[in-house]
Design a binder for these strands. Structure first.
Length: 292
DNA sequence: AAGGGGCCCTGATTGC
DNA sequence: TGCAATCAGGGCCCCT
């Protein structure tokens, strides 16, 4: 379940393996993994061959590798279970290997392995960024907001957007067009730290509450990044196939009926958006006017 | 037209 | 024991 910290761990891990290396050839082993590349799997592979990769970049949960003169890029979203792995090119093929690129220098290859195929890769153009003057972003993600660890993130604009929305705070945190990089785990963690219930209506939120949840999101994602990200089973791993250590630091997510680390009350689990929401019934009381 | 729900996927786990 | 139901969830698409 890679969210911002996990994707950033992958980006850092890829850096020395992509920068300045030319692709000899690529193969797509599962068409669904390039479904957003409209010209199809064969075009994806053919157009990647011969291109030189640059240093990988990231916004929210999206990662991209600019190509050649930076007019284009490989855009990646890891979805639920996507891994980008590097290793000896002749090693055994993973069961869920979906896309593979080998380089002209004959060194480590780059593999996209994805059990559930919610993730995807595509080739795309880079266009001017709306948030960061002079920067370029992949065209398909121009609509998503900057993430809270970027300098370009506009906290004031985020607050104004919250007040305009008629929804609950968790749904807003998960809306990548308002703030990117936050998924189900870190949304629950940020709300627990900010002592806000997930159904708190955003249109009446105070500046202090908005600041609190934003700072909490920054803090918790920064802390997770510092220890290599969160991992449950093997659904998320870095480029060497290793898991992170943040799971043991989670305060809310996945802790149903376990004592709140602040007040001792048993953590509750609610159904929300067809998934789970974990919160403390005492520290995060349900608002009278709840919004989903 | 913004908000909310359904759906896509596979493997581990749970239940009968 | 074996099979079926359930769960996990990001983002796209569709409906109202």
């Amino acid at each position: 379940m890679p969210e911002l910290p996990e994707v950033e761990v992958v980006r850092r891990g890829l850096e020395s393996w992509t920068t300045g290396r030319a692709v000899a050839s690529a193969e797509v082993l599962h068409p669904r993994s390039v479904r957003r590349h409209e010209a199809g799997p064969a075009d994806f592979a053919a157009r990647l061959a011969g291109r030189t990769m640059q240093a990988p970049r990231r916004r929210g949960k999206y990662l991209w590798i600019p190509l050649d003169d930076k007019s284009g890029a490989v855009l990646a979203h890891l979805g639920m279970s996507g891994h980008l792995l590097v290793g000896e090119p002749d090693r055994e093929r993973e069961k869920h290997l979906r896309v593979r690129a080998v380089f002209t220098d004959g060194g480590h290859d780059l593999r996209f392995v994805d059990q559930r195929t919610f993730g995807h890769l595509m080739l795309t153009d880079l266009v001017p960024d709306a948030f960061d003057a002079g920067a370029l972003v992949p065209e398909p993600i121009v609509h998503i907001a900057a993430d809270p660890l970027e300098d370009a993130f506009d906290a004031e604009a985020f607050f104004r957007a919250l007040r305009r929305r008629k929804t609950g705070i968790k749904r807003a945190l998960l809306d990548q067009s308002l703030i990117s990089g936050v998924g189900n785990i870190y949304a629950d963690e940020a709300l627990w730290r900010a002592r806000l219930h997930w159904a708190r209506p955003t249109d009446t939120m105070t500046r202090a509450e908005a600041t609190r949840v934003l700072e909490a999101a920054r803090d918790v994602m920064g802390a997770a990044l510092a220890v290599g990200g969160t991992s449950f089973d093997s659904l998320y791993v870095n480029v060497n196939g290793e898991s992170g250590y943040f799971e043991r630091s989670l305060d809310a997510y996945g802790r149903r009926d376990e004592p709140c680390r602040r007040c001792g009350a048993p953590i509750r689990r609610d159904e929300f958006m067809n998934r789970s929401s974990y919160s403390c019934p005492v520290c995060q009381p349900r608002p009278r006017r709840a919004r989903h």
